[in-house]
């Protein structure tokens, strides 16, 4: 930008880029740009939510059954963690506006810690899915050798599986996706609330087919991993952003006159939080009431 002839003659405020006339114009541009970026992010996740909506409305019982095997405690805890991190992020912006460098740095560090805790909890959950054969891609689950001496639980009909019991570890020599429980579908069948599309999706030969049911549960887990995975990717990018922000805030770059980067990073961080605010009830809580 130093190549511009005009730069020689015009006094520039620090942080003002060459194409703008003044800081106001720059701030307004950057802020509109960031919001448009968030608009495209909304549409990006919107595609996934559309897919979710279609399958959820088509197979509500399979989705409820599948959702019950997600741990709502960890999910809820993560929601709280993200909300706290959103608060600290909002306070970072607040302290930047107040030109308080030390509190900015502290708040950024806190935000990063909570972000990392979120990812750690996500790791615990993913590991849990790995152990229980709930990763939809074949071969990515823990391989469990068939134990000849163990009693053969799988011989029970799928609708007699106790869905409130902790998930059992089944033999899974090739690390495939495992699912043995269709009790919720059976319950819905007995209460006569299965929709035609569900009967089409779950039945073969006039009764519930665990293989077909499993296929649909697998779709839920596929969506779960894609949605939370992309969300986690956004968290990781956010943490990268925070690292840069920490460095620049440490140098004391931000004050009440110039805090646009803090504010913009904040917008991004809050957006990621908002996505999770929707993912939590839609993925973790949707079949919870059938368990009680």
């Amino acid at each position: 930008m130093s190549a511009h002839a005009s730069d020689k003659f015009v006094y520039h405020e620090p942080g003002l880029q060459h194409q703008f006339e003044d800081m106001k114009q720059q701030e307004e541009s950057v802020s509109i740009g960031m919001w448009l970026f968030l608009a495209q992010e909304i549409m990006f996740f919107g595609g996934l939510f559309t897919a979710y909506l279609v399958y959820r409305s088509r197979y509500p019982m399979a989705f409820a059954a599948a959702s019950n095997h997600l741990d709502a405690f960890w999910g809820g805890l993560n929601t709280l963690v993200l909300i706290v991190s959103s608060l600290t992020m909002a306070l970072t912006v607040y302290y930047a506006q107040k030109s308080n460098r030390n509190m900015q740095v502290i708040m950024i560090i806190l935000t990063m810690i909570f972000g990392a805790v979120f990812l750690g909890v996500k790791g615990i959950e993913y590991t849990d899915k790995y152990h229980h054969g709930l990763v939809p891609m074949a071969g990515l689950n823990q391989r469990v050798k068939a134990d000849k001496n163990a009693h053969h639980e799988t011989e029970k009909p799928c609708w007699e599986v106790d869905r409130n019991a902790p998930p059992a570890v089944h033999p899974n020599p090739r690390g495939e996706f495992l699912w043995t429980d269709c009790s919720l579908a059976k319950l819905a069948q007995d209460e006569n609330i299965l929709t035609p599309s569900e009967r089409f999706g779950y039945y073969s030969g006039g009764q519930i087919d665990i293989e077909k049911f499993k296929g649909i549960v697998r779709i839920f887990y596929y969506l779960y991993f894609v949605m939370t995975g992309l969300h986690a990717l956004h968290m990781i990018i956010g943490l990268g952003l925070m690292t840069w922000l920490l460095w620049t805030a440490w140098k004391g770059n931000y004050n009440s006159e110039y805090y646009m980067p803090v504010e913009m990073s904040g917008l991004y961080w809050h957006f990621v939080d908002i996505v999770w605010i929707f993912l939590f009830p839609l993925l973790y809580l949707l079949g919870r009431h059938f368990n009680h």
Binding site: M43, G47, Y59, A138, K212, V226
Partner: peptide, 28 residues
């Protein structure tokens, strides 16, 4: 509009790699 096709192409790519997904009638 573009983000929607981005996510769609991404889902196709994942489905090709993972052999599981939401677009193949053979798996519901």
């Amino acid at each position: 509009g573009t983000p929607v096709v981005a996510i769609t192409v991404l889902l196709v790519a994942i489905e090709r790699v993972a052999r599981v997904g939401i677009f193949d009638p053979a798996i519901g």
